[in-house]
Simulated assay, not measured.
Amino acid sequence: MINCHLTQAQASNSTAENEVKKINLAFEMGNNVMLYLDDIQHTNPEFLQKFISLCDGSRKVDGVFNGKSKTYDMRGKKFAVVMAGNPYTESGEAFSIPDMLANRADIYNLGDTLSGREHEFSLSFIENSLTSNRYIAPLATRDMDDLYKLVQIADGNPIATTELQHGYSQAEVNEIVAVIKRIRKIQETVLKANAQYIASAAQDDKYRTEPPFKLQGSYRNMNKMAEKVVPVMTDEEVEQLIADHYRGEAQTLTVGAEENLLKLAEIRGNQTAEQLTRWQQIKADYVRHKNLGDNDNPIATIANQISLLQQGLNQIGQALQQPQSEGLAALNETLASLKLQVNVEKPDHSALEQAMSSFSEHVDSFLTPLVTVLQSNKSVVFGVG
């Protein structure tokens, strides 16, 4: 058990102090309580570690109530702790739950729990944004079935206004439908960003072929854009609204603003030719830098380069097994893309010399038989880049 207290005196500001006070009040109440902690990616790992003993078999936690330190025993009580967070902080830094806490908790991924409920989830973005926009805000206090019917009308379905529960004027219906149509365009982008964010966060870094995607598609993003929508906006103005919003979001990332905006344009399907070229270059450079490995470790760099060379030779072998004309063209293209570069600076131990010697022997054993075979074919034209 970790002997540390959730103390108001340790809070860095008044807001944090109030939150800690609420947590300790929940401990004091003890029974029939659900303690919900949101956006835990913004908290200090030490804060989360204070809940480890509460989540394991001991079911105990230290707290402070009315200035007195107490140990709360939750065994046999109906006390649940629910935490929610994102895999990245707002600055784009990776976030992970402390291992000891994760091992004692049930972990749910939003992407997994949404299976079969995609339609309801997509509508929740509109439901959540109702109070952000003055034209559709009244719907928040009316029968929600009206909202669903108005969404169907905005989507082009033939729903009579007489089916609505509230007595709307035609002018009011027209305004609401016009706003929902524009919000639907925003919703489409937010959902795509959300799906890409979840997929990227779930991927291990060693398998990535492009930079991680850190722009979120959250209710907050939806609300911030929805509040600016008016019935008379054109499609171009809506597109500009979305672009401006995510440009601002990208600027809050520590690094990667350009690549995240290029990826967003790709998933939205509105990349320009210049953006496509730049995005392909970034992806190629990303893979190349990963393959070069740790520049501070020359042996690891050499090992990575040998691996790249072997991959290239395997491609050559596959090309030679193809029909003559097709194989030669593929061989020429493969050789052109094969770029081997080894940079070793200031070797300071014998292990590096052994690695270099082994590297030389491998190159000889790989390339000598290949060159012998290729020399017998006079029609081969090499284009090594």
Rank of each mutant, 00 (worst) to 15 (best):
P231E: 07
S200A: 11
K185H: 04
K263P: 02
Q240M: 13
E227M: 12
K224Q: 13
A243I: 10
R288D: 12
R247K: 14
N194G: 07
P211Q: 03
Q203W: 02
N223D: 01
Q187A: 12
K224Y: 08
G248Q: 14
V177S: 09
E188T: 08
Y246P: 04
R278P: 00
Q196N: 12
T272Y: 04
A273C: 01
M233W: 00
V177Y: 03
I186Y: 06
I242Y: 08
E172C: 12
I176K: 15
L292Y: 14
R288I: 01
V177A: 10
L292W: 08
E266R: 14
S200G: 09
E274Q: 08
P298C: 00
M222F: 14
V255Y: 14
K228S: 07
V287F: 07
N174V: 00
I180K: 10
N194L: 05
K283W: 02
Y246K: 14
K192F: 01
T234D: 10
A250N: 03
T234A: 12
V177H: 08
R268Y: 02
V287E: 12
R220I: 00
A284T: 12
R184V: 09
P212Q: 15
V255G: 07
K290N: 13
L261D: 13
E210C: 12
V173E: 00
L261N: 10
A195N: 15
N295W: 03
E188R: 10
N291Y: 06
S218L: 07
E227T: 03
A201Q: 04
K192G: 05
L253M: 09
V190D: 09
N291G: 09
M225Y: 13
N223K: 14
E239G: 09
V232H: 06
